Simulated assay, not measured.
Amino acid sequence: MTVTIKDVAKKAGVSPSTVSRVLSNHPRISLETSRKVKAIMEDMGYTPNMMAKSLVSKTTNSICFSLPKPAEELFSNLFFMELIRGIVTQASRSGYDVLISSGANEKEELEAVSRLLKGRRVDGVILLYSRTDDAVIDFLESNDYPFVLVGRSDRYENILSVDNDNVMAAYDATNHLISMGHERIGFVSGPPNLIVSRDRLAGYRKALLNSGLEMRDEWIVEGEFLQDSGYRAMSFFMNLPNRPTALVAVDDMVSFGILRGLNELKYKVPDDLAIVSFNNIPLSELSSPPISSIDIGIYHLGYTASQVLIQNIKSPNHDVGYTNRFVIPHRLIVRESSMYSHAKNKTE
């Protein structure tokens, strides 16, 4: 038989409304009464009706994160798994549940997020991507729904966001290859409509420009954050008459595809081609050879995004820390894929 609030109230010798106030941590309930009622709840095995509670408090104690593509495709990239681990860990510590929202395209994403928020099933949203002209951000911003963007917006300056300095991160990655003697450096980018792709490409270009090195359009290839993008890029790059001797790859998963393609073509890393990529997922250290990668603090991106969102939900008018943009620091992890000095290219 299900235990109700009335059953708890009767045993505790208080009114049902007092039990409800204990559940919502009402400040007018004394510590002694709160402890007594909670002990009786535990003894009786009472489980709060969260739906009923949300109707009273107008909160759900739930947030969601929105996936920019079908879940089965994204979960093949360990970046998102680690990002979500950070989100869920912090949300759980704050007493919040986490839901997943996804769609096959931007229209479906918008519909999914809209259903959850308008149906009051979640209190806020974490967007795991940042696109140019994003309809989901437009919807959230115009309706004043709580949300946090992992990345940055090119249209809204004051939205809550958690990001890296991706321009500087790509600058550092490219500069490392330059310091190893490389002069012909290519770039395997992500989808051009993603801000992170544009920022990392900008950092790559900036490093080449500052060093007075040549930039060629054929040394830049766009793709997805998937192995296949790196694999396809190899057949193109290695057949160029004046091919790059080093590559900056936008994501570690892309680098794995590059390694696979080079192996099939009988080229060696870093002797024939050096590689630096991004995210520093655990497999980058275990690949053959181990891949040099920019560690962007994936877990901390997710953890901070969850923390900032929940703080904003609880105190919507509270200053979250004198800034709306939180930047997670990055660092270059140098491994075998880029350690070989290619200074000889200066005389080729």
Rank of each mutant, 00 (worst) to 15 (best):
K6P: 00
D7E: 05
V8Y: 03
K10G: 02
K10N: 02
K10F: 03
V14A: 05
E32D: 14
K36I: 01
K38H: 06
M44W: 01
L55T: 07
N61S: 14
C64K: 01
K69M: 15
L74D: 04
F75E: 04
R93E: 11
Y96N: 01
G103Y: 05
A104Y: 11
V113G: 02
R115V: 00
R120M: 13
G124L: 00
V136H: 03
S142E: 15
N143K: 15
D144P: 01
D154V: 12
N158V: 08
V162H: 07
A169G: 11
A169V: 10
A170L: 01
Y171E: 03
Y171W: 00
N193R: 13
D199E: 12
L209F: 12
F225P: 05
Q227R: 12
G230D: 06
M234A: 01
N242H: 14
D252T: 07
K266Q: 15
K266A: 14
K266V: 07
P270A: 09
L273H: 00
I275H: 00
S277H: 06
S284N: 03
E285F: 13
I298T: 15
Y299V: 05
G302C: 07
I310A: 08
I313G: 00
H318Q: 11
V320A: 11
Y322W: 11
T323C: 03
V334G: 02
E336K: 09
Y340P: 03
A343H: 09
K346W: 11
T347D: 04
